[in-house]
Simulated assay, not measured.
Amino acid sequence: MGGNRTGVELVRRIVRTVVNDGDLGAVPDLFAADYVLRKAGLSVPRGPEAIKMLVRQWRDAFPDYHVEIEAVIAAGDVVACRYVASGTHRGALLGVPPTDRAFTVRGTDVHRLADGLVAESWLADDLPRILTEVGFLTPSASSRWT
């Protein structure tokens, strides 16, 4: 990557083009052929198809899915992104039928870059909170969200 500014711009482009607009055709130009996606509880193949699968899953469940970047920080070949994600549950997600309820959560993603592309990502959103806000989970009184 030609400096931190370029890495920041790459991550902003991914959020704008792939995540928010759902343009999966842009993925090969943004992710390495041997891309690795790391997300707790998720098993996906190596390569750009991993991010396509994840984006497809979220956009099918939340057609209005949108990520608003709050901050992007770059150091060396690593770019971290803190964001707010929102959407309305209008399609099945992980076997959960649509509830037509909305969610808003914060998350953080960390990306390792190589040769101008994202080579590896660690994704951390708040799936329990999403499932609670769309009405699938009900937290106990001692674990209410703040």
Rank of each mutant, 00 (worst) to 15 (best):
Q57T: 14
T17V: 10
H111A: 12
L93H: 02
V134A: 03
R16T: 09
L54C: 10
E133R: 00
L42T: 15
L10E: 12
G95Y: 04
A119Q: 11
D34W: 12
P63R: 05
G116F: 15
A124L: 15
G95F: 09
R129C: 12
H66M: 02
I51M: 11
G47L: 06
E133M: 01
E68Y: 05
H111S: 09
E49S: 14
I73H: 11
D23V: 10
T138G: 06
F136A: 11
F62I: 02
Q57W: 07
S86D: 07
D125A: 09
D60H: 05
R90H: 05
E133F: 00
A114L: 08
R46C: 13
D64K: 07
D125Q: 14
L93N: 04
V44Y: 09
L24A: 13
L113H: 15
A85S: 13
P139W: 01
T132R: 01
A40M: 14
V44P: 03
I51H: 10
R12Q: 14
C81L: 15
R46G: 12
V78W: 09
A114H: 14
V18C: 00
L10N: 10
F103G: 01
G22W: 03
T146L: 09
D60M: 08
A40Q: 15
L94C: 04
G25K: 06
G7Q: 13
A26S: 09
V84Y: 03
F31E: 02
T146S: 14
F103K: 00
V72S: 04
F136I: 08
A85W: 00
V105Q: 00
V18L: 01
V105I: 15
F31P: 01
G87I: 07
W145D: 09
P45K: 12
F136N: 05
A80E: 06
V19D: 08
G95V: 00
V118C: 09
I14R: 08
A75G: 12
W122L: 11
E68F: 03
I73K: 04
R59S: 06
P63E: 06
D100S: 08
V67I: 15
G87A: 05
T132G: 09
A75V: 11
P98T: 01
S121W: 12
F136K: 02
E9I: 05
H66A: 09
G3R: 08
D21S: 08
T108V: 13
L117G: 09
S86A: 14
I51C: 07
V110N: 07
V72L: 11
L37Y: 12
S121R: 09
R12L: 12
V8E: 14
G87T: 03
R5E: 14
G2A: 13
V84D: 01
R90A: 07
W122E: 12
R13F: 03
V19N: 04
G2Q: 14
T88I: 03
V11Y: 13
S143K: 03
F136Y: 14
Y83H: 10
Y35G: 02
D29V: 05
D60L: 10
R82F: 08
M53V: 12
L24V: 15
V67G: 01
T132D: 08
A124S: 15
